[in-house]
């Protein structure tokens, strides 16, 4: 079996988000880049599956769409344990463009399982994995919190309201994974970092494709308002505020 993990290169989740002076872009100077957390968990799970020799997984491949600046991120994926990496050399402008590039890069590679994180922690798009599965005409399961291989079969848990369903897809398929898929991401070891030097990192040139969406403007969030006080004799008003104003319950 061969597993592919699609990886986004995103700013560290603790990054303070600043906008450029004209609000046309997010200022990404001096940002620490990381593997998108959900993608990293997907990779962790893929490596766990590979380490269980009963699963007969020959290869764990990672792919990213990005410029040369994304290379440290994908090199880290190799250091953690992926066998090889592919980088499609173009700016990942939107999910459509990224899915198009990945679909093109892997359509003849016959991966059995393709793992994507449920969203990227930067633009929170939640679209790439679904688009990719459709472009490759493969079945997909989303909201996956567990994946197991039993012989030639793959079983996944899909989160639903109040619980989960166990789903068996026919292979090959795309799993769009969320928290829970693996316990915690791995730290690359010195040996892994050393071995990553030798592992193949293929750079592919992009196919012609357009983004279908574009970010035209940004706004900072509202500054935190002062605490709104509710009278202790009118507690129901708090629930009303949480429901109608905060829209949180």
């Amino acid at each position: 079996m061969k597993i592919l993990i699609c990886i986004s290169n995103v700013p560290d989740t603790t990054t303070k988000i600043k906008l450029t002076g004209d609000n046309k872009a997010v200022d990404l100077a001096n940002v620490q880049w990381i593997i998108n957390p959900w993608d990293e968990l997907a990779l962790t799970r893929a490596l766990e599956l590979k380490e269980n020799t009963a699963n007969a997984i020959d290869k764990v491949t990672v792919i990213t769409v990005g410029n040369a600046g994304a290379e440290p991120t994908i090199r880290k994926a190799l250091a953690i344990g992926a066998d090889n990496a592919i980088r499609v050399n173009t700016d990942p402008k939107d999910a459509w463009l990224v899915a198009t590039q990945i679909a093109n890069a892997v359509k003849s590679e016959n991966f059995d399982i393709i793992l994507c994180g449920i969203e990227s922690s930067d633009y929170n798009g939640s679209a790439m994995g679904g688009m990719l599965s459709e472009m490759l005409d493969l079945p997909s399961v989303s909201s996956v919190s567990k994946i197991e291989i039993e012989g030639a079969k793959v079983k996944v848990n899909r989160e639903i309201a109040g619980g989960f369903e166990t789903v068996e897809p026919s292979l090959p398929f795309v799993a769009i994974v969320q928290k829970g898929i693996a316990k915690e991401p791995r730290i690359p070891s010195m040996r892994g970092i050393m071995m990553a030097r030798q592992k193949p990192l293929t750079v592919l040139e992009p196919v012609a494709a357009d983004a279908l969406t574009g970010f035209v403007n940004y706004e900072p969030p509202m500054p935190k308002a002062a605490c709104k006080m509710v009278d202790a004799d009118n507690v129901a008003q708090l629930v009303d505020l949480l429901h109608h104003e905060a829209k949180i319950i």
Partner: peptide, 14 residues
């Protein structure tokens, strides 16, 4: 919302 609410973005669908 983008960056988990750290900013808002206007997105155009072309």
């Amino acid at each position: 919302k983008v960056f988990h609410g750290k900013a808002f973005a206007d997105v155009m669908i072309k």
